[in-house]
Design a protein around this nucleic acid. Sequence first.
DNA 1: GCACATCTCCACCTTTTGGGGGAGGCCAGA
DNA 2: TCTGGCCTCCCCCAAAAGGTGGAGATGTGC
Lengths: 230, 230
Amino acid sequence: MLRVMVVDDQALVRRGFALVLNNEPDIEVVAEAGTGIEAIEAAREHQPDIILMDIRMPEMDGLEATARILQTAESGGADGTPCRVIILTTFDPDEYVFRALQAGASGFVLKDIPPEALVEAVRTVADGGAMLAPGITQRLISQFAQKMGTGRNLAERLERLTTREREVLEAIAAGKSNAEIAEALFIGPATVKTHVSSLLSKLGLRDRAQAVVFAYECGLAAVGERDVGF
Amino acid sequence: MLRVMVVDDQALVRRGFALVLNNEPDIEVVAEAGTGIEAIEAAREHQPDIILMDIRMPEMDGLEATARILQTAESGGADGTPCRVIILTTFDPDEYVFRALQAGASGFVLKDIPPEALVEAVRTVADGGAMLAPGITQRLISQFAQKMGTGRNLAERLERLTTREREVLEAIAAGKSNAEIAEALFIGPATVKTHVSSLLSKLGLRDRAQAVVFAYECGLAAVGERDVGF
DNA sequence: GCACATCTCCACCTTTTGGGGGAGGCCAGA
DNA sequence: TCTGGCCTCCCCCAAAAGGTGGAGATGTGC
């Protein structure tokens, strides 16, 4: 039995969703909340599997509440069910989607979703999947493809470099000094300087700082690969 | 009427999908293809609205074919319908998803999808949305949140900087030299040096190259914002 | 064999960078 | 009022970076 909690500041909306969900034999609405604060308390008390969360609410909005609930759920740890959140909203501005996914939401659907689709979304998310409104999925894909696709034209310039020069460029993009690069590649500092000069000239760059920018822009380096512990 | 093309190297699979789709009053399977090469030709000839594309195929795989079809569709331009592709596969390794989205696919679903869901996916994608298998959506979200989330802890370090120092850091991340930064901010070169020294020390960095890395990692700079024309 | 590219290193030089000071002006909060 | 942070700029200096030109040792392909 899927234990669901519905969070929305409008009681009528809550009742509507609860009705639809309780109509399913394997779904049970075990709690309701009207504000973010209430949601956090109720989540702790009732330990639902799924939370349907509105964004606009008094006291604390749904995104903030989502972040806090999922955060404590993680730190708590001992839960058999990690509890997953589906954001339910009337609008779909990018910023909301963005923050919702950051907060750890597993779904983001619009309130005009057909009842069957809502039920399906709940089951999908409970099953470990994620469910986004089609338009949102579309935008997520676009952004994803864009981030990954920018490298295409620049990657051609990359091919003009020799293997060694690419290795040096990678090291530069890791924030290494010439001396550190020499050590890492088991070559002399003078050789590193040769490679650096060569790759800068081939790529039309002026200094290693620009080389770092180039490495990120063309995909040779990517955000998240590196620990900035230097 | 939605004009659909089915691409799969197994004739039986094609017939199966065609049967399901032709059963819908508003959907018509107008073409079939058994290889990537055939798919490209058939797409040009029949101009379908939606293509259901298998990945594993002889001669040319579905991802390559997808990329080519969407590329020529873009360059062709004059099409009323841009033609959208749904990848249909038995497996879902990350690499495939990745390349599929890069190639421009609007959907990525597994072949064990229920018939109704497939029909819904076709309609959704034809409507401008996108449809991914729940697990894939989940992973896409994770990656997205990860990319965006890395900034959190680092962004705190950012807050230790003064406004001016952040501006200088942004300029550094744009590949500017101290002299160029001075010009851009209407201050003297000496002042720039002061700010640079200060921000490097505050962030625990050694040189401007590391500062560029930091800017990208914490989200101050992002791939795609910059034209690497230097 | 010869041409060609790559990788390795050297020396010499100029420019840039980064660190350590110090100093004046400005403004907000105690 | 005075303190402290911020922005501005200066000096001097050492280290790092970048450019130029040259050199020997490998290959690989014609």
